[in-house]
Amino acid sequence: MEDQRRPRAVYGVGDEPDARFSLANERTALAWVRTGLGLVAGGVALTSLATFAELTVLLDVIAAVACLAGAAVAGYGWRTWRRNEIALRTGAPLPAPTALPVLAGGVVLMALVLAGYAVVSVV
């Protein structure tokens, strides 16, 4: 019987890996999606706060960056799941993670900008 799972580019390649590895790969992808959702939610919260409190456009810009970063992180989670699943199915080494340093640097940068904004607005 032919495998009907999609995407065929993933499930039509190689041999079926141990289910534990596939499920761990899926949990990791879902964690990336949750992180992306958290960034989008933070962006929505910031823009709502800026609107209700009549704050500067800077918070709207930071909110937009957070929402776009959330979309990028969720997309990265899908891409990484796909690459890792194909590697598991073909017996190839798992690809190195690439977005982790970028995400961590982005969080640090956003925290510094918001902290600087808070200090400047108090003074």
Rank of each mutant, 00 (worst) to 15 (best):
V40G: 11
R34K: 11
G38S: 13
A96W: 02
R89I: 13
V108P: 11
A118W: 03
A24I: 04
P7M: 02
P93C: 10
A50D: 05
R27G: 07
V120G: 05
T56L: 00
Y11W: 14
A69S: 12
D18W: 04
P97A: 14
D3A: 05
A9G: 08
V33M: 10
L23F: 14
G116H: 06
Y11D: 02
V33C: 08
A71V: 15
G38P: 02
A72F: 06
R79Q: 14
E2F: 12
V33R: 08
A31R: 14
L37D: 03
L68Y: 06
P95L: 05
P95T: 07
G106T: 00
L49N: 04
L23T: 13
V113A: 03
G43I: 01
L109N: 06
A69Q: 03
L68Q: 06
M1L: 12
A115C: 09
L23G: 04
V107R: 03
E85A: 05
L30C: 06
A111T: 09
Q4G: 04
L94F: 07
A99S: 11
R8T: 04
A64K: 03
E26Q: 15
V108I: 15
R83P: 05
T90L: 04
G105A: 15
V10C: 01
L58G: 08
P95F: 08
E16N: 07
P97E: 15
G106N: 02
R20T: 13
V73P: 01
G70L: 09
G77T: 03
R79D: 10
A104D: 03
I86R: 13
T56Q: 02
A118P: 01
P97F: 10
L55V: 03
